[in-house]
Amino acid sequence: MERKIRVLVAKPGLDGHDRGAKVVARALRDAGMEVIYTGLHQTPEMIVETAIQEDAHVIGLSALSGAHFPLFPEVVRLLKERGVDDILVIGGGIIPPEDIPKLKAAGVDEVFGPGTPLNEIVEYIRRNVKR
């Protein structure tokens, strides 16, 4: 059976800085993954619904506005509410180091800050997809 990792790259909130999201999206594609891009200004509800319809293995959230709280944990909460426990949730952006443990405690699987090598993200996804 052919296995293809599907990643939903989403920008929650109002912030329009999509450079990072797009660079990561391209890197994942170049690593052979299928990347579904949602565009800007997504609510957590939209992101979760899209992830379900697209049967994504991974949700990658990008926020540079500081709105990772409460938006990232909200995505995790909605997934749980819908009974989804097999989607890997990762995030990136301008995220203060002391927020990372809090995001993880809230159920975000991993957080990648500025300067993360693209390959590290690719490898992390390959090793950690839940199905």
């Binding site: 109002l14 609510t43 500081g66 938006l71």
Partner: peptide, 22 residues
């Protein structure tokens, strides 16, 4: 902040989580 940049008041649903951050 972002809601202001998009012409939303702080009480708009899209403003959630964005108040005063940027």
């Amino acid at each position: 902040d972002y809601p202001t940049l998009y012409g939303y008041d702080t009480d708009h649903p899209m403003a959630k989580g964005e108040f005063g951050k940027c």
